[in-house]
Computed example of a mutant assay.
Amino acid sequence: MTPGFPSLAERAVDAVEEMDRPDADPRRLERTYAQFWLINAVVSGWRRNYVRYLRPLFREAGGGSLLDIGSGGGDVARSLARWARRDGLDVEITGIDPDPRAHAFASAQPAVKGLTFRQAFSSDLVAEGQVFDVVISNHMLHHLTPEQMQALLADSRQLARHLSLHSDIERNPWAYALFSIGTRPFFPGSFIRADGLTSIRRSFTREELLTVTPPGWQGRQHRPWQNLLFCPPPGRVPGLSKEA
């Protein structure tokens, strides 16, 4: 392990991110939501995911619908909506988050055509009989208990007509070290740095993730330090190849 940093041999399942606490400082929390777009642009890889996995599917269908579960401040959903419109694709995107603070922040941002937000759990949409062409989540799996994760994956299979794609951080000593050093001078007054380090400690390796994933899902690693879960695998989704 890198000197001066904690061991990442096992998941820190008991560690709690500050923004997840019900009594989190509202100003720091709002600043965190406002800064997520930069972190996600650098580390989450959704532009790559859109180009490789989502755009081919929507081009073949001439458009479609997408659900972002746990959309937080809404920056990933906002980016996907803009990229789709720029490519001439008619894609309706819904972002859901059960946290009223996240929903309030996302809903207060400038409107983007084809994008709506709801305060809801994925189970609420299952109960309503909703279906979307694509279901995604970003950096959410590591937040969940084993029971919550199984429920989320089951919900996403019911909600997705064609593809479920969940992206999460991969626990790695170098990821921890680089994030710790790279974010030290930045993001004052927010939870970005502290919670990002906690997220890495809580996240899965690829092997760990596959051991807790139900049958029918495929795991894939993307660098730097990202895990993707697909259902069904890309080779069985219209518009996507196994080598996408």
Rank of each mutant, 00 (worst) to 15 (best):
T2G: 01
T2H: 02
S7C: 02
E10R: 15
E10L: 12
R11D: 12
A12T: 07
A15G: 00
E17Q: 14
M19Y: 12
M19V: 08
R21I: 02
R21A: 15
P22Y: 11
D25N: 14
R28L: 12
L29R: 04
Y33H: 05
A34L: 05
A34K: 09
A34Q: 14
I39V: 14
N40K: 08
V42D: 00
W46Q: 09
R47M: 00
R48S: 07
Y50D: 07
Y53W: 15
R55I: 02
L57E: 02
L57A: 02
R59L: 04
E60P: 02
E60C: 04
A61S: 14
G63W: 12
G64L: 07
S65P: 03
L66W: 05
L67P: 03
D68N: 09
D68H: 04
S71M: 09
G72P: 14
G74R: 00
V76G: 00
A77L: 08
R82Q: 15
W83E: 12
W83R: 11
W83K: 07
A84E: 06
A84N: 11
R85V: 10
G88F: 08
V91I: 13
V91M: 06
D97P: 06
P100F: 06
P100T: 09
R101P: 04
A102W: 04
A102P: 09
H103R: 06
A104W: 03
A106G: 09
S107V: 10
A111S: 13
A120T: 12
F121P: 03
F121H: 09
D124C: 06
L125Y: 01
V126A: 03
A127V: 03
A127K: 15
V131S: 13
V134Q: 11
S137D: 12
M140Y: 13
L141G: 07
H142A: 05
H143G: 10
H143V: 12
T145N: 08
P146K: 11
Q148F: 07
M149H: 01
A154I: 01
S156W: 13
L159D: 02
A160K: 11
H162K: 14
L163A: 03
S164V: 05
L165K: 07
L165A: 10
L165E: 06
H166G: 00
S167N: 14
E170W: 05
R171D: 05
P173Q: 05
W174S: 01
W174E: 02
A175F: 14
A175D: 06
Y176H: 12
A177Y: 12
R184C: 06
R184V: 02
P185L: 07
S190E: 13
I192D: 00
I192W: 06
A194F: 06
A194P: 06
D195S: 02
S199L: 06
R201A: 15
R202Q: 13
R202A: 09
E208Y: 10
E208Q: 10
E208T: 10
T211S: 13
T213D: 10
P214N: 01
G216M: 09
W217D: 09
Q221R: 12
H222D: 13
H222C: 04
P224D: 02
P224Y: 01
P224Q: 03
P224C: 01
P224F: 09
W225P: 04
N227I: 11
N227M: 11
L228M: 01
L229I: 08
F230R: 08
C231K: 04
P232H: 00
P233R: 14
G239C: 04
S241M: 11
